[in-house]
């Protein structure tokens, strides 16, 4: 296992583990922490967490494959999540997703996570982001954008450094 965890991250992780009476509970928070740091959850990360929490790697692997927010492959620098659920669909998110995909040269029919050739953007058509009153909505990394027209989407993408 060659996983380079900086001291700061490790101490944050140690702190997170103390939040729970049982270590296993911390596994999702640890997965978030490592995904934020490395951009994805690698096999090494899974094994590292399992060891840290005294679990079997399968226990962690089960979570990674269950919760869609964890990804096992690296994604682009910016992950654009377009909401596809009913209110956003009524607000035109289908077209918005197609627009974003074609702008970035991606397959508009593919709803899964796909990354642009330059590796800068990843686009994913996701389930409800819980801001149905301002449909359609997208998330660009941790930033949330409401009432996104195609023009607004262009601006959001263009503004990404």
């Amino acid at each position: 296992m060659s996983l380079n965890i900086p001291q700061k991250l490790e101490s944050e992780i140690e702190e997170l583990i103390t939040h729970y009476p049982e270590k296993r509970s911390a596994s999702m928070m640890l997965l978030h922490a490592l995904q934020e740091h490395f951009g994805y959850v690698s096999k090494e990360s899974i094994e590292w967490i399992a060891k840290k929490l005294e679990l079997k790697p399968i226990n962690v692997h089960e979570l990674v494959t269950f919760y869609p927010m964890f990804r096992q492959e690296p994604a682009g620098k910016y992950v654009v999540k377009v909401c596809r659920t009913l209110s956003c669909a009524l607000g035109g998110s289908g077209k918005l997703h197609k627009h974003v995909c074609s702008k970035l040269g991606l397959d508009a029919e593919n709803h899964g996570l796909q990354t642009s050739e330059d590796g800068k953007f990843s686009v994913e058509f996701v389930e409800c982001l819980a801001s149905c009153g301002t449909a359609p909505v997208i998330m660009c990394n941790n930033e949330f954008h409401e009432g996104v027209s195609q023009e607004k989407a262009d601006t959001i993408i263009n503004q990404c450094p």
């Binding site: 399968i58 089960e62 494959t65 269950f66």
Partner: peptide, 9 residues
């Protein structure tokens, strides 16, 4: 031996 699990959803 907690060796098996369920993957995917």
């Amino acid at each position: 031996d907690d060796a098996l699990g369920i993957v995917n959803r």
